[in-house]
């Protein structure tokens, strides 16, 4: 179990309890987080699950993006940053407890 915080561009945020084995996208969808649209259901073809990872240590802890994720990050609706990830490609584990991700303005 890990608690993940989704932050909105207007400064509000929501905490979500996520179970290991899901992706961060699935945790968000299950909790009904606005802005994680995830139209392709996790197949890395829609880029509507884009987030900015705010916790530096946790970002470094994640396994790096695959080639496909890397390429899709060039086609997100809000321009990618160093901290960009597709949330469908981040597996939840207990180590992610306290993860904070920001939802791009263009997705809300």
């Amino acid at each position: 179990m890990a608690v993940i915080t989704f932050e909105y561009p207007d400064g509000t945020s929501r905490d979500v309890e996520a179970t290991a084995g899901m992706s961060v996208m699935q945790a968000a969808k299950t909790a009904g987080i606005d802005g994680i649209i995830a139209e392709c259901g996790g197949d890395m073809v829609c880029a509507t699950c884009h987030v900015f990872v705010k916790s530096k240590e946790l970002l470094d802890h994640l396994s790096p993006p695959s080639i496909t994720e890397e390429q899709m990050l060039d086609f997100t609706s809000e321009r990618r940053r160093q901290t960009s990830r597709l949330s469908c490609q981040i597996p939840v584990s207990d180590a992610l407890d306290g993860l904070v991700v920001e939802i791009p303005r263009t997705q809300v």
Binding site: T19, M25, Q26, T30, G41, D43
Partner: peptide
């Protein structure tokens, strides 16, 4: 969403609510 039904969901239904 239907796409996962012929893919990931057939292997693991744990993400059922995320559909």
């Amino acid at each position: 969403q239907r796409p996962p039904l012929s893919k990931a969901y057939l292997r693991d239904a744990s993400g059922s609510d995320a559909l």
